[in-house]
Measured scan of single mutants.
Amino acid sequence: MTYKLISNGKTLKGETTTEAVDAATAEKVFKQYANDNGVDGEWTYDDATKTFTVTE
Rank of each mutant, 00 (worst) to 15 (best):
K31L: 07
T18H: 06
A23L: 07
A23Q: 11
G9P: 05
T18P: 00
T55S: 09
S7W: 15
M1R: 11
V39K: 02
K4T: 15
E56C: 07
T53H: 07
K50W: 05
E42D: 13
E19D: 10
L12T: 08
N35M: 15
A24F: 09
E27T: 03
N35G: 09
A23R: 12
A48T: 12
W43N: 00
G38I: 04
K28W: 08
N37P: 01
A24G: 08
E27I: 06
F52H: 01
T2C: 14
T49W: 03
D46S: 05
T11E: 09
A26L: 01
S7R: 05
T25W: 07
T11M: 10
T25G: 08
T16R: 11
L12Y: 13
N8F: 14
T53N: 04
A34P: 00
E19K: 13
T55D: 06
T44S: 13
F30A: 00
G9F: 12
A26V: 02
I6Y: 06
A48I: 11
N35Y: 14
V21C: 13
D36H: 07
E15Y: 13
K4M: 08
K10D: 10
A48S: 12
A26I: 02
K10N: 11
K50S: 05
A24H: 09
G41R: 01
T49L: 07
Y45T: 00
G9R: 04
G9K: 04
K50M: 09
Y33N: 03
A23G: 04
N35K: 15
F30C: 02
E56H: 08
G9D: 05
D46Q: 04
K10H: 13
T55H: 10
E27S: 06
N35W: 14
Y45V: 00
N8T: 11
E19Y: 15
V29T: 10
T18Y: 11
T49R: 05
E42N: 09
A26T: 01
V21P: 15
V54C: 05
T44Y: 10
Y33K: 03
V39S: 03
K13R: 14
K10G: 12
Y45F: 06
V54A: 01
L5Y: 03
T53Y: 13
N35P: 01
I6K: 07
T18W: 06
L5P: 03
K4Q: 05
V54W: 03
V54T: 02
